[in-house]
Simulated assay, not measured.
Amino acid sequence: MVTTPPVEATVSLSTAVAAEVRSEIARRGIRPAAFADQLGVPVHWLRNRLNGLVQINLDDLAKIAEGLDVDPTALLERAAS
């Protein structure tokens, strides 16, 4: 019989990346609304991704990483650890 871990024990990579981006924005003291303006996206676009309502895809990751001036792989590595 195959068992699956409890739902709370599994975290998607998209969710982990969103948490890392939220942390990075907070470390820099950037308000989400200001960061959304910097990215050129509506604030609801950013909030939906940071709150896990919409999964962060590769294009989103590239846009967010560029706005933070970090390599997208750095966000992925930090999120995965």
Results as ranks from 00 to 15, higher is better:
residue 28 R to A: 11
residue 19 A to E: 14
residue 81 S to C: 11
residue 4 T to E: 10
residue 31 R to F: 06
residue 41 V to R: 15
residue 77 E to S: 10
residue 76 L to W: 09
residue 46 L to D: 05
residue 56 I to L: 06
residue 6 P to V: 00
residue 40 G to Q: 05
residue 32 P to V: 09
residue 58 L to T: 14
residue 78 R to K: 13
residue 15 T to P: 01
residue 14 S to Y: 01
residue 81 S to L: 06
residue 26 A to N: 14
residue 30 I to D: 08
residue 20 E to C: 09
residue 44 H to Q: 14
residue 74 A to T: 14
residue 81 S to I: 02
residue 68 L to T: 07
residue 25 I to N: 04
residue 30 I to G: 00
residue 66 E to D: 10
residue 73 T to C: 02
residue 13 L to M: 11
residue 23 S to R: 14
residue 3 T to Y: 12
residue 60 D to F: 00
residue 9 A to I: 00
residue 75 L to D: 09
residue 71 D to C: 04
residue 19 A to Y: 01
residue 25 I to M: 12
residue 8 E to K: 10
residue 39 L to R: 01
residue 57 N to W: 06
residue 42 P to M: 07
residue 67 G to V: 08
residue 77 E to G: 05
residue 8 E to I: 04
residue 24 E to D: 15
residue 18 A to R: 08
residue 61 L to W: 03
residue 48 N to E: 15
residue 69 D to V: 04
residue 38 Q to F: 06
residue 62 A to N: 05
residue 64 I to C: 05
residue 5 P to H: 05
residue 6 P to Q: 12
residue 81 S to R: 13
residue 17 V to C: 11
residue 27 R to N: 13
residue 45 W to Q: 02
residue 11 V to R: 13
residue 11 V to M: 13
residue 36 A to Y: 03
residue 32 P to M: 06
residue 15 T to E: 15
residue 17 V to N: 08
residue 73 T to A: 13
residue 19 A to V: 03
residue 37 D to V: 01
residue 66 E to W: 03
residue 21 V to H: 00
residue 62 A to L: 10
residue 68 L to W: 09
residue 40 G to W: 10
residue 60 D to V: 00
residue 7 V to E: 15
residue 12 S to I: 06
residue 26 A to P: 09
residue 51 N to E: 13
residue 40 G to N: 11
residue 14 S to T: 12
residue 57 N to Q: 10
residue 44 H to E: 12
residue 30 I to A: 08
residue 20 E to L: 00
residue 81 S to M: 05
residue 20 E to N: 02
residue 49 R to D: 07
residue 4 T to L: 10
residue 6 P to W: 00
residue 41 V to H: 09
residue 57 N to P: 01
residue 45 W to G: 03
residue 41 V to F: 13
residue 28 R to D: 13
residue 64 I to E: 02
residue 15 T to D: 11
residue 2 V to A: 11
residue 3 T to S: 12
residue 7 V to H: 08
residue 53 L to Q: 14
residue 70 V to M: 07
residue 69 D to M: 02
residue 7 V to P: 08
residue 36 A to P: 05
residue 33 A to H: 12
residue 34 A to G: 06
residue 23 S to T: 12
residue 45 W to E: 06
residue 78 R to S: 14
residue 20 E to P: 01
residue 28 R to C: 11
residue 62 A to V: 09
residue 18 A to T: 06
residue 45 W to T: 03
residue 42 P to F: 02
residue 25 I to Y: 04
residue 78 R to F: 03
residue 58 L to V: 13
residue 64 I to Y: 03
residue 30 I to P: 02
residue 64 I to S: 03
